[in-house]
Design a protein around this nucleic acid. Sequence first.
DNA 1: AGTAATTCCTATTGACATAGTAGGATTTCG
DNA 2: CGAAATCCTACTATGTCAATAGGAATTACT
Lengths: 147, 147
Amino acid sequence: MKISTKGRYAVRVMLDLAANNTGEYIKVKNIAERQDISDKYLEQIIAILNKAGYVRSVRGAQGGYKLAKDPSKYTVGMILRLTEGSLAPVACLDTPDGTVDCDKCDSCETLEVWKELAAAINNVVDNITIADLLERQKARLQDFYVI
Amino acid sequence: MKISTKGRYAVRVMLDLAANNTGEYIKVKNIAERQDISDKYLEQIIAILNKAGYVRSVRGAQGGYKLAKDPSKYTVGMILRLTEGSLAPVACLDTPDGTVDCDKCDSCETLEVWKELAAAINNVVDNITIADLLERQKARLQDFYVI
DNA sequence: AGTAATTCCTATTGACATAGTAGGATTTCG
DNA sequence: CGAAATCCTACTATGTCAATAGGAATTACT
């Protein structure tokens, strides 16, 4: 029941892009340094975000990445599902529609548990956006400087 | 973010023992047949439940297993944590106490997300007992025969 | 006492996923 | 043209999952 580094790093990348947005394109190398992640590994992760259109890229010298839309448009759930695959706690629940992929789900008492669990998980990750995280971060930095 | 078969099977075993409780000891073979699980694999899973004292066993011919306590004493969370290990969605949160095992948790904005997620997960699995599942099962069987 | 049934214990295996590392092709700015 | 950056693909080491396998120890029944 662990979220992999791929998913966690992807969220941090999106937050980093939001936090360091100046309108300029941001290089992988800089993100990797700030986040203390291997830049080669980060490349692969950001490639997923790029293919999905979550970020825009410019190639070549002075190139880099920036968020495609406003931070408020990206939920943690979107990012995790994109990079991790489904967040469903059991395989029979990770269908694109809401159906159940199991031949004996009719007599499966535990299925209800997993459905409740899936709903609880979704409820958390789908209700936190990158903008929310950014706001929290700013609030914390404020506190830091005030003290 | 999947729950493994170990955890899922363990819950089903506990429910099976509760549902088929007649005071007699129940054999692994019978549980395996009813649940359609390899009995050799089930042996290993039930061994975990046994060592933790969740079930009582009698060896030898006519031996078997039964729940150690009332079904209401076992939550799904207890069983999953026992068999799966921690349910924390990130490694830095699976400490026995509530502490965080990460050197830069102070500046980790995403940690809050994982904490909320962990709380949501716990809230579901810690509030469903085997007795609850048993009740639902009985209700469903009732419906079946009435129709 | 002997035998069948059952739990108990440990080792092994094949398949797959994770978390990177590595190398170079391609594109673009200066 | 050359340096800097993204893009693309292959490889690898490690570990986990989900069993399978074989036999040792224990007990009830005849």
